[in-house]
Amino acid sequence: MRLPKARGALSDALFSVLRSGGPAPAGVAAENRDDAAIALWSLYELHYRGFEDVAEDAEWDPDLLRVRRTLEVGFEADLGARAAAHAETYPDDPQRPVGDAIFALTEAHEGPSLADHVQRAASEDQVLELLRQRSVYHLKEADPTSWVIPRLEAEPKAALLELQFDEYGCGRVEQLHHRLFERGMISCGLRAEYGAYVDEAVVEVLEQNNAMSLFGLHRRLRGAALGHLAAFEATSSLPSRRVTQGLERLGMAPEVVHYYAEHVEADAAHEQLAARIICGALVDADPTQRESVLLGVRACLVLEDAVATRMLAQWEATA
């Protein structure tokens, strides 16, 4: 993957530095949310698979880390405010075990549903656009959560590894979830190479990705990473079923249907593991982690709402 297109003054300055290896841009502010999100996304990407046009040692360049931190502070504050607003509408009941609380929140949450739209009404072009947007995450599916593993004690770690092993195909590369998504994309005539559609990604998708990297890369936010995982899994089985029905309605290729069908049953197990066993063990051992877990749950829900609202509005405007 090469660096994406800049979206404003900050990403423009940052990307020229990443290409040339010069001093990191100091004092350049993000022009807008898109600019901040693509800059942060690219800085995070240095920790995943990097860019062909950026030197590998940029990953731990202290000046670039300083830029990343500045962007993270703003982004984390914004996420915290959005999670707090969510908590006003959907308060926690601290008497409930955290696993029950996660299911109660994800079931009570009402938001726009892309899966419903795909099931009933989406055109093939809209589905292809959604797959391109989703590819920014699905081509590195489960990777942000893997950062958390060495930060956990034995009980949540063992359960998280059971879940991640399934995500990674239990040792069979052809079953690895991001490989299943690649095959689904190719079957629809889309490009499947990592990062192929980042330039098309709406800011809401970049922010959804950035939240997972933020939670994954900071040990301090390990509870949020696992809460995000639990909410993501707990909002996957039934919606994935609806997506398979929409893809079948449109006569789309079996490989892409299979990706979503796999998630119906996989995530029915993963949601229980993540909410009850992984988050349950984390919070049992350290009750102060409950707040962080619920931050991750709420962030997952509000960020997906933002993606759905954006895509549905875009499609309505062009209908």
Binding site: F103, S237, L238, R241, E265, A268, A269, E271
Partner: peptide, 13 residues
């Protein structure tokens, strides 16, 4: 479940 004997999350409905 529509995926019996496996769970597909339908209990939540």
């Amino acid at each position: 479940s529509q995926s019996a004997p496996w769970c597909d999350g339908t209990h939540k409905l």
